[in-house]
Design a protein around this nucleic acid. Structure first.
Length: 514
RNA sequence: GCCUCCAUAGUUCAAUGGAAAGAAUAGGGGACUUCUAAGCCCUAGAUGUAGGUUCGAUUCCUACUGGAGGCACCA
């Protein structure tokens, strides 16, 4: 699309390694795209930015650019020629697929997300990482990567034993003790006939975890979150992967013994009682990802409470001989849920939480997804439950879906009057703005493929809906002027397709009627 | 005590070091009665404080204030 073309052209004219940007202009007077390249060069080579801008302006091709303005202190503002916009609209109508317009080097990517311990139902807090991961996977596969959606199931630690003990205690008529899991689901599991045969806490816990694991999958499916691999920690133990990892670290002389335990830097791998730590299991897990399964890139979506773990993991995989650039960790900041002006405190152990199922029932599938996908991962967010219930109709997602339904409705009302479309008839401000916005879809996807900020797509989609609605309200699509109607119908079609495409990648429905 | 993240309109959120900080909602005003009014058009309103780097800072650095989280031979 245009941004890429402008960027490539400039790059040919400047010394290699020059860092500059081409971005979408927000203000019409500044054209459609703007570049700071002259300013960047001025800094690098000490030249006058306005002179550099003049030079670049004289050298740049005008193939699809109508005009280039130079603005103080040295910006280049590009105005796309209307005929080029027409061509772009026709291209998008013909080949809407992202792969046609966004080029990436295909990678084998492991995207691990949610990975909540199977010691209870998913809470609505798990929704944030869940939706974000799901939409990321959609987008990364769409641009051409080979993506595995993976859930790491922690089924081998103390918490499973604790789960077993909690159920055991309740089943024996007692109350859950300090450190035990509480909540209705423990009582339900205590009555579960499938579990009655287990008399040992560990086995009971494991069997219960298995039941909970399946329930988690059902909840995720209801939320539209899909996985293709459920990776069990226990399988690492079974296959002696922890020992292999340990041997490797010992061989390299990285693991050190101290006070009867085995350490990697400041972190324990094997406790003095001989037990392996979770850290070692995680190293073995990532060894499996990178070495055994040969993923080029592992993306982990983690909750903010794991941030202290990031550096340890990166150093750990580096020690295993894997470049840490191949591990990308996305931290999701916490969500605070507010009800009646008070924060709703959630704790799985204390049994105080709202489940993901309940959240979706309360605010609806599409609204829940939209709400979480709308925000950047690295800001804490407040979720007002009362407001979400009350204002469900005012949720932006309905505005976007409504725009799509309208576009569908117009398309249905139309007849095939004439063949051939004269796209040059589209010259109203709202029409040209809409065409530009449609082409920016591909630029947005390109950005996300690079930085994984999925919320860019949500914001883009809302903006597209606004611009479409403005076009719709200001210009009648179906008129007596058949040639004009035909052109506007084509634009309507492109807008509808792009809305549907975006919503689809976000995992949100695009109803044809509302 | 040490570390990480965060602080933007009344409220909920945007803004790859760029020009005049965008939306939504709540507020004020208006048009149409014709393809879906869950809509459109206009209007008012914000970068926590004090410094620094830079041609240019919401963005980077330092200190402070306020909020969240993390610092185990837990998982």
């Amino acid at each position: 699309m245009f941004r890429r073309k402008i960027y490539d052209e400039i790059q040919k004219l400047v010394p290699t390694g020059t860092s500059f940007s081409v971005e979408v202009s927000e203000i019409p007077e500044r054209g459609d795209y703007a570049s700071n390249v002259a300013l960047a060069l001025a800094k690098k080579e000490g030249k006058n930015p306005l002179e550099t801008a003049e030079y670049l302006k004289s050298k740049l091709s005008r193939e699809f650019i109508e005009r280039i303005d130079i603005a103080s202190p040295g910006f280049l503002n590009f105005f796309i020629a209307p005929f080029a916009l027409s061509i772009s609209l026709q291209n998008v109508l013909k080949n809407p697929g992202v792969k046609n317009w966004v080029k990436v080097e295909p990678k084998k990517i492991n995207l691990e997300f949610v990975s909540a311990n199977p010691t209870g139902p998913l809470t609505m807090a798990n929704g944030r990482g869940g939706f974000y991961g799901d939409a990321s996977a959609n987008i990364l596969s769409e641009v051409g990567h080979h993506v595995t959606r993976e859930y790491y199931v922690n089924d081998a630690g103390n918490q499973i034993k604790s789960l077993g003990l909690s159920i055991w205690t309740v089943r024996s008529g007692g109350e859950p003790k300090e450190g035990h899991y509480k909540g209705d689901y423990i009582y339900k599991l205590a009555r579960d006939k499938r579990l009655l045969i287990y008399k040992v806490a560990e086995r009971l816990g494991k069997a219960a975890a298995d039941i909970l694991r399946k329930e988690i999958e059902v909840s995720l499916l209801k939320a539209g979150i899909k996985f293709n691999v459920w990776f069990y920690e226990s399988s690492l133990h079974k296959n002696k992967e922890l020992d292999k990892t340990l041997d490797l670290l010992k061989q390299k002389g990285i693991a050190e013994e101290k006070d009867g335990a085995l350490w990697f830097a400041d972190h324990v791998l094997v406790k003095s009682n001989g037990n392996y730590t979770y850290f070692l299991a995680d190293l073995a897990y990532h060894y499996d990802k990178f070495i055994n399964r040969k993923f080029d890139l592992a993306i982990n979506i983690w909750g903010a409470d794991h941030h202290g773990y990031v550096e340890r993991m990166k150093k750990g995989i580096e020690a295993l001989g894997v470049n840490q650039e191949r591990l990308k960790i996305i931290m999701m900041q916490l969500v605070r849920f507010i009800s009646k002006g008070q924060e709703v405190k959630m704790s799985k152990r204390a049994g105080e939480f709202v489940t993901l199922d309940e959240l979706i029932e309360m605010v609806g599938f599409d609204a829940a997804r939209w709400f979480f996908l709308e925000r950047t991962p690295n800001t804490q967010m407040d979720f007002d439950l009362d407001l979400a219930k009350e204002r469900s109709k005012k949720n932006p997602v309905f505005y976007v879906q409504y725009a799509h339904a309208r576009a569908c409705s117009v398309a249905k009302a139309s007849r095939n009057w004439i063949l051939g479309t004269d796209f040059s008839l589209l010259k109203e401000k709202e029409e040209l703005t809409l065409i530009k916005k449609i082409t920016q879809f591909y630029e947005t996807i390109e950005d996300i493929a690079n930085d994984y900020f999925v919320h860019r797509l949500t914001n883009y989609t809302y903006g597209l809906a606004q611009i479409y609605t403005s076009f719709y309200e200001n210009h009648k699509i179906l008129t007596e002027n058949k040639k004009l109607s035909r052109a506007r119908l084509k634009l309507n079609e492109a807008a509808r397709n792009t809305l549907r495409y975006s919503l689809g990648l976000l995992g949100i429905e695009s109803p044809e009627k509302m």
